[in-house]
Design a binder for these strands. Structure first.
Lengths: 116, 116
DNA sequence: CAGTATCCGGTTTGATACTG
DNA sequence: CAGTATCAAACCGGATACTG
C-alpha cells in the first residue's frame, strides 16, 4: 500500500486525488472491470483490454496488486500461466466500474445521436 | 463534442475508455465535484482544487465545456468575472463523483488503519 | 480577474526485441 | 506464456511573465 500525504484542504478533493492515483490512468479501470467479470490470465487481459501494450499491462497489474486490489497466482502448467483475480477489497470497486461503464455507454449513445 | 472511434471489441471496455478520456487526468473529476456543489468562479476553483495550476485549470475547463459537462458565463463586473456551472448533462456525473469521493474516504481510513 | 504564451523537465506510453 | 529491457516520441504539468 502506498503511503498518503496529508494536507489541510477539502477532504473530498483529497479523497478524489487518492482514487485517481490508484485507478486513474489510461488502463487501470478497464483492467479492474475485466477482472470483476472473471479471473483472467495475462494474455487474456492483453487481448481483452483493447489497445494496451504488454509493458503497460504488467506495470499496471503490479500497481494494482500493490494496492491490494487484485491477486496474482502462478499456475504451474507447462509453460506457466498466471492468473489475475479481483481481490475482496478490489471488488468494492465493482459498483464504481459498472457506473463508469454505464455512463460511458449512455454517452456513446448521446454522441452518436447528436453527431448523426 | 469529441467524435469517438469505433472498433470491434468489448463495448464496456470501449465505454470505459471514453469516460476516462473525458473525466480522466489528474484534475477533471475534482473540478466536476466542486462544481456539483455550487457554481464557482475561476479563482475560486483555483483555490478549491488544491494544487492545480492556472494553466491546467483553464485547459481542463475548456475540455469540460467542449464536452458539454459545464457551462461558462462571463459576468460583466469590473473587472470581469467568469462563472462556471455544472450543466444538466454534467450533473449526470454527480453520483459517480460522489461514489469516487466516498470510496477514497474509505480507502484513506483503510490506509491509516493498516499503516498505523 | 481571467486567462494566454513560452519554456522546459519529468513522466507516460508504444514498438520492438529479447528472456526463462 | 508471461513478462523485461531499451529507446524514442508524445504528453503532462509547473513556473514565470504577459494581456485585456
Amino acid at each position: 500500500m502506498k503511503k498518503l500525504e496529508h494536507k489541510a484542504c477539502s477532504k473530498r478533493i483529497l479523497a478524489i486525488h487518492d482514487v485517481m492515483d490508484i485507478i486513474g490512468g489510461k488502463w487501470k479501470i478497464s483492467i479492474i472491470a475485466c477482472l470483476c467479470s472473471r479471473k483472467m490470465r495475462y494474455s487474456e487481459l492483453l487481448h481483452e483490454v483493447n489497445g494496451i501494450s504488454g509493458k503497460m499491462l504488467s506495470r499496471d497489474l503490479k500497481d494494482l496488486e500493490m494496492n491490494q486490489l487484485i491477486t496474482r497466482r502462478v499456475v504451474d502448467t507447462q509453460p506457466i500461466s498466471v492468473e489475475y483475480e479481483i481481490s475482496e477489497y478490489g471488488s468494492t470497486l465493482k459498483q464504481l466500474t459498472d457506473d463508469i461503464a454505464n455512463w460511458g455507454l449512455e454517452h456513446r449513445k448521446r454522441i452518436f445521436e447528436t453527431t448523426e
